[in-house]
Amino acid sequence: MIPDASLAALSDTFFSVSIALYSLAVVAFAAQLAFGRRPVRTPELVGAGAAPDRPVAEPEQGRRWGLAALALTALGAGAHAAVLVTRGLATDRLPWGNMYEFATATVLVAVVAYVVLAVRSPGLRHIGLFVLAPVVLSLVLIGLYLYAEAGPLVAALRSSWLAVHVTTAILGFGIFFVSGIASLLYLVRSRYESRVAGGEAANDAGLLSRLPDATALDRVAHRTAVFGFPIWTFAVIAGAIWAESAWGRFWGWDPKETWAFIAWVIYAAYLHARTTAGWRGRPAAWVNVVGLVVMIFNLLYVNMVSTGLHSYGGVN
């Protein structure tokens, strides 16, 4: 079928709109951190060398900025979802048939995962800046370098396994994205906390003091990874089942398969590390970060540089 040009153009407009809304959300999140400063602590507490406590009551102004930022993020996510819906309608197929669409959908999952977390535990709203800034950056890069015209699917992708395999891969990837960012923030924040515990004066005005405490970040990272891991496992298995009917073997160490396997093994190592003495804390968090790097590498390098059976990227 011939793609509907006006719907395809609408989809591109929504793409710009969502970037604009997310950028506003980034500004609002930054304002939340700037204005959400805690009242200066009493000297006795600092003198006692107290570890940084969680923000007791956030000043009203900061809280309002935080809510505005969250609302902008949600609006942006609406526009972001519309990018995919209109693409799907324009081409009359699932809107993840090439790298542009796949990457766009993955970023949407990451945003939605963050919004769900932030709604459920308000303490996590403070990491919004660090989620939304990479989101905006990713979308800009996707728009610049991965963009592909709306078009029909190649024969090999016309299978119901596209819905199963690619959808779960997107879900898993998006969730790992949030998990990896939480681990990165954990690494930064836990260093700050040990500096403070080591007697250095806490900088109440600094960004780091505004982050959720390290334990909370570590827990979010772990719980999102625990959520993402079975989904990713399922995506890999579904991919193998699809490969069996499309390519004649369920596993052939095609570059994409190899890197999916590497990512899987690294996330398994992360889950182990979290429960193993000597690996808990910072080493485990690094493993999670490496996992995210591998996922991103798998998306970019394997589609754009190496050639394999998965080269349906639509990027030349």
């Binding site: 190899t258 093994v265 190592a269 190496s306």
Partner: peptide
Amino acid sequence: LFLLALAAVPGS
């Protein structure tokens, strides 16, 4: 597990 991940890298 790490070694396994690492060992797969040259294969790609």
